[in-house]
């Protein structure tokens, strides 16, 4: 029951990759990932992101993207499937729904 918060671009940080590795190996699927700030670049159809997208597709836990951070960066057209978009209100709701939130630096 953990909401995993990631805010770094996948080009600069292995945070999303490491988080996915842990969740893949987990027995329970009651956790979720929320990508904010530069982490929203993880949803771009860039070849460098393909391995991440494969993992996300297979993952039982949902992966969310923060709408405001996508719009701010002009990224709404070229996103791959498999992500759910939430706005700030959704972010607040997610923080309440999960037992704890942990940020991956």
């Amino acid at each position: 029951m953990t909401l995993h918060l990631i805010n770094k671009s996948p080009a600069k940080s292995s945070a999303l990759n490491e988080c996915l590795s842990v969740l893949e190996a987990s027995n329970n699927s009651s956790s979720a990932i929320l990508l904010i700030e530069d982490a929203v670049y993880s949803a771009l159809k860039h070849p460098a992101n393909m391995a991440l997208h494969e993992k996300i597709k297979k993952l039982a836990s949902p992966c969310y993207l923060l709408k405001e951070d996508l719009l701010m960066r002009g990224l709404h057209a070229e996103l791959v499937e498999g992500f759910t978009i939430v706005d700030y209100a959704g972010f607040v709701q997610l923080s309440l729904d999960f037992k704890k939130v942990q940020s991956w630096s």
Binding site: V22, A25, N28
Partner: peptide, 8 residues
């Protein structure tokens, strides 16, 4: 990794 997921 499975034990790490549990620890978290």
């Amino acid at each position: 990794l499975n034990q790490i997921a549990d620890a978290i």
